[in-house]
Computed example of a mutant assay.
Amino acid sequence: MAKSPFVLTVQRHPRYTLALAAFVLCAYWFLSTPTLPPSPVRYNANNELQARLEREERKYRAMLPQRQELITRYGPTPAQVVMFPPDQDPWPPYTVWDFFPPLYNCPHELDRLGALGDGGKWICGMSRIQDKPDCVIYSFGIDSTYLFEATLLQSTRFCQVWIYDSTKGAGAEGHIPRALRHRAHFGKLALGASDRHGAGDEPKTWTLKSLMAENGHSHIDFLRLDVEGWEWETFRGIVRDFTMERGNPGGGGPHAPNKDNATSGWGVAEREGVLPFGQLQIELHVWNQRFQDFLEWWELLEVAGLRPFHNEINLVYANYNRHSGVELAEYSFINIRGENAFGVALAAAHSVS
C-alpha cells in the first residue's frame, strides 16, 4: 500500500514529528484551559476629579437658599405654591420644574443612549462602566422597543442588565439581539415600597433591597425607573431601607423649622448611609401631586446623597395632553456618597483615572 506524502515527510524529517506534537499539545492546552474572569477594575484617586466634585457640591448647596427665596416669592409657603400657575394675572413665570434644576454637572462625558426621540436616556460617564467586569444594571418599566437596554449592552463588555416589568413576561428576551441575550435577565414583577410576592399576590411586588438580595447583588451601577407614578412611594421605601435619619429631627412636619435643619438648607432631616447605586435615571409623573409633597420627596433624595445632573421634559406627553401641565420629566442623578464607578474611588491595579 502506498504511503501518503504526509507520512513520508514525517518519516524522512523527524523534526516535523516534534513540531506536530508541540502543535497538538498547545492546542490541547488552549482548548482545555478555563477562561479566567476579567480582572476587577479599580479607579485611580484622581485629584482633579475630586476637586470637580467638591466644586459641584459647593455650587449645589449655594443654590438651596435660592430655591427657598423662590418658594417665598410665589408661596410664601410650600403649601401655597401652585405646580403649574394658571394663564391669568399676575402670570407668575415658573413651573414646578424651575424649583429643581439639574445644577450638578456630570464630572465625566455625557451621553444619550437609546432612541433619538422618546425613550432615550442620559447617562454620565459611560466610559466608567464599559469595561467594568462586575457591572450591574437594573431597569424597571420597559417601553415597547427595549432599545435603551440593548444599547447599554452593546456599549459595554461585561454589564449584566436585569430588566423588570409587571406586564411583560415570556418572550421579552426577543427584543434583545441574540448575541447579547446572555447578559440580559428578565422578570415579570413590579418595584414597590414593600414586599408582596406571595402565591396570591398579583402583580408580584419586590422592594429593591429584597430583589438585590435575591439576585446576590451588593451594588447597582446604573438604576433606571419608569414606574408610572409609583416612584414617590417606591423611592421613599428605598431611602428608608438603605439610610437612616441623622439625629432626631424634632418632629413638626417635613418643613417645620428645627435646630438640626436650621443650617442644612433642607427642610427634612439629613440622612446617614449609602444608597446602593452609582447613578439613577427616573421619569417623574407629577399627576395630582402637591408642591409641598414633591418638595419633601425631592429633598429626601438630596439628603440621601443624590444630585441631579440632567433633565428632559417629556414634550411628547405634553403635546398629546395640552389641557394639562407639563407633568412628566426625565431626571438623571449621580450618587455622591460611597465608592461607585462614577465618583472617586481607591487606586489599585487595572486602574482608570
Results as ranks from 00 to 15, higher is better:
residue 129 I to M: 10
residue 130 Q to A: 10
residue 130 Q to V: 10
residue 131 D to N: 15
residue 131 D to M: 09
residue 132 K to W: 03
residue 132 K to A: 04
residue 134 D to C: 04
residue 134 D to T: 12
residue 137 I to D: 01
residue 138 Y to S: 03
residue 139 S to Y: 04
residue 139 S to I: 07
residue 140 F to T: 02
residue 141 G to C: 08
residue 142 I to K: 04
residue 144 S to E: 14
residue 144 S to N: 12
residue 144 S to Y: 10
residue 145 T to A: 14
residue 146 Y to E: 01
residue 146 Y to Q: 01
residue 146 Y to T: 01
residue 146 Y to K: 02
residue 147 L to I: 09
residue 147 L to R: 14
residue 148 F to R: 02
residue 151 T to V: 12
residue 151 T to S: 13
residue 152 L to M: 15
residue 152 L to D: 01
residue 153 L to N: 04
residue 155 S to T: 10
residue 155 S to W: 00
residue 158 F to G: 01
residue 159 C to P: 03
residue 160 Q to D: 15
residue 162 W to I: 06
residue 164 Y to A: 12
residue 164 Y to S: 09
residue 164 Y to P: 00
residue 164 Y to K: 07
residue 165 D to W: 05
residue 166 S to Q: 12
residue 167 T to W: 12
residue 167 T to V: 13
residue 167 T to L: 14
residue 167 T to A: 10
residue 169 G to Y: 09
residue 169 G to I: 04
residue 170 A to D: 13
residue 170 A to F: 08
residue 170 A to S: 13
residue 171 G to Q: 06
residue 174 G to T: 04
residue 174 G to W: 01
residue 175 H to K: 15
residue 175 H to P: 00
residue 176 I to D: 04
residue 176 I to H: 03
residue 180 L to A: 07
residue 181 R to H: 08
residue 183 R to T: 05
residue 183 R to C: 05
residue 183 R to S: 05
residue 183 R to L: 06
residue 183 R to W: 07
residue 184 A to M: 06
residue 185 H to A: 03
residue 186 F to H: 03
residue 187 G to E: 12
residue 187 G to A: 13
residue 188 K to Q: 15
residue 189 L to C: 13
residue 189 L to T: 01
residue 190 A to T: 06
residue 191 L to V: 14
residue 192 G to D: 06
residue 193 A to P: 05
residue 194 S to Y: 12
residue 194 S to D: 13
residue 196 R to Y: 05
residue 197 H to E: 01
residue 197 H to Q: 09
residue 198 G to E: 08
residue 199 A to K: 10
residue 200 G to R: 11
residue 201 D to Q: 08
residue 203 P to Y: 10
residue 203 P to D: 09
residue 204 K to A: 11
residue 204 K to R: 14
residue 205 T to G: 04
residue 207 T to M: 04
residue 207 T to S: 12
residue 207 T to E: 03
residue 208 L to D: 04
residue 208 L to S: 05
residue 209 K to R: 15
residue 209 K to G: 01
residue 210 S to E: 13
residue 211 L to Q: 11
residue 213 A to L: 11
residue 214 E to M: 09
residue 214 E to R: 14
residue 215 N to K: 15
